[in-house]
Amino acid sequence: MIKLFARAAALLFLLTVPVSAQDETPSDTQPQLAEAVESAAGASLIVATREAPPFALRGPDGEWTGIAIEMWEALADELDLAYDLRETTLADMIEGTAEGQYAASVAALSITADREFRVDFTYPYYSTGLGIAINPISTGGWLQVARNFFSWQFMVVLAGLSAVLLTAGVAIWFFERKGNEEEFSRKPVKGLGDGFWWAAVTMTTVGYGDKSPRTIGGRIVGLIWMFTAMIIVASFTAAIAASLTVGQLGSGIEGASDLDSVRVGVVESSTGAEELARRRIDARGFESVAEGYEALLEARLDAFVHDRPVLSYVARDQFDGQVRVLDQDIGREQYGIALPEGSDLREPLNRALLSYINSPRYEELIRRYLGSDGG
């Protein structure tokens, strides 16, 4: 009886010990969120940012504001995170976060496949697209026509036309220099000038009559040149008429399909630069949207491509009435907070972020910076 009781007690002990041990052993594969937040809160985090109004703005007093900044402040407060903001470039926000120099990067930071290879992103907090900004004054009307006349393309046409006139002048001088010396001098410089003049007045049908071919060869050249000149004048007139018509109708830039034939600017290392490169559209890089707008106003650019809410905000805030953002978007993109790969902050930030963007506080934040239409 005593042995049976002992065996039953031993069996009960074996059944209860593993269960107790399992309850007391923490999981190594799924760390608790509280532990991740507690470890992050132990030291002040270095958070990278850059000016990207209205998502990140730095005031005269050095204080940072904006949609992304105020959102991060709310998240950090929720998770009890101490942090210091550090201003840097867009490229360094990605590289520095990937290398672990920054615990996070917060601004108008688009989530792309290339960036996802180097860093982790939180859940998206804003969705938008790329916009196209133009100067409605300098890209339309008679100013545009005048600019077309003094463009390098127009100068190339003039140079080609001059070369054709010179060729006709050389041909007529070659035949007339001996039999018609009084009208086409034997001296090469003066004689070629006479030939060029004759070709020009013949092409324009002015026909002053001061010079006319008398030799058989010269008359054959003259007859060929008359018909050739008619074709040249008709083509040249059509090109000028098209330029005038396009200039009067408007800017000629209505969407992304028009960007491959105009001068385009982007912010360096931005998703706008990546998108235009993917479309094989040449673009000039600028440090900021404001610099790009200055180039538009100085007629050094025809269009500027960047994130629509940033384009619209800077246009209203600094260039009211001087630039226009087209209605058509290029693609879609989403903003997120960049984190080093495998960061323990990702899960707690995602939970806090999802709660925040579905709250009235986030709606009020968007309205305050972007208006009732959200940008």
Results as ranks from 00 to 15, higher is better:
50 R>C: 04
125 Y>T: 07
58 R>Q: 12
114 D>P: 07
86 R>M: 14
122 T>Y: 02
67 I>W: 03
96 G>D: 08
59 G>S: 13
51 E>P: 06
30 Q>W: 08
40 A>M: 15
102 Y>H: 07
87 E>A: 15
29 T>M: 10
52 A>M: 01
130 L>C: 10
37 V>H: 11
98 A>E: 11
30 Q>A: 11
101 Q>H: 13
52 A>D: 01
121 F>Q: 01
57 L>N: 10
66 G>S: 11
126 Y>E: 08
38 E>T: 13
72 W>E: 07
91 A>R: 03
35 E>M: 10
119 V>R: 04
122 T>M: 05
38 E>N: 12
73 E>H: 00
87 E>N: 11
90 L>D: 12
118 R>E: 12
91 A>I: 10
38 E>K: 14
114 D>W: 13
84 D>S: 00
123 Y>K: 06
66 G>I: 09
107 A>V: 03
62 G>C: 02
50 R>Q: 02
71 M>N: 09
74 A>F: 11
99 E>F: 12
72 W>A: 05
79 L>N: 00
126 Y>L: 05
46 I>K: 14
71 M>P: 01
70 E>S: 09
111 I>M: 04
44 S>K: 11
103 A>P: 00
116 E>N: 07
67 I>L: 07
113 A>M: 13
91 A>P: 00
87 E>C: 08
67 I>C: 05
80 D>H: 04
68 A>P: 03
86 R>E: 14
128 T>I: 07
119 V>Q: 02
49 T>C: 13
93 M>Y: 00
74 A>E: 12
32 Q>K: 06
110 S>M: 12
61 D>V: 05
77 D>Q: 04
37 V>R: 15
49 T>N: 10
77 D>S: 10
57 L>Y: 10
82 A>H: 12
96 G>V: 12
48 A>V: 01
46 I>S: 10
91 A>Q: 07
86 R>G: 08
121 F>P: 00
103 A>E: 02
111 I>Y: 00
128 T>E: 03
130 L>K: 07
38 E>R: 15
60 P>W: 01
116 E>Y: 04
56 A>F: 02
85 L>A: 04
131 G>T: 04
70 E>C: 10
36 A>W: 09
71 M>D: 00
118 R>P: 02
68 A>Q: 10
82 A>Y: 14
27 S>A: 15
96 G>N: 08
71 M>T: 05
128 T>G: 00
128 T>S: 06
114 D>M: 09
119 V>I: 09
68 A>T: 05
60 P>E: 02
30 Q>I: 12
71 M>K: 08
29 T>G: 09
113 A>I: 14
39 S>C: 13
83 Y>P: 06
95 E>W: 13
98 A>V: 09
37 V>A: 13
80 D>A: 05
110 S>I: 09
99 E>Q: 15
94 I>E: 13
79 L>R: 03
47 V>Y: 14
70 E>P: 07
60 P>Y: 03
124 P>A: 15
95 E>Y: 13
97 T>S: 05
105 S>I: 07
28 D>Y: 03
98 A>F: 15
63 E>R: 15
124 P>N: 12
104 A>T: 00
42 G>L: 07
45 L>S: 10
129 G>S: 15
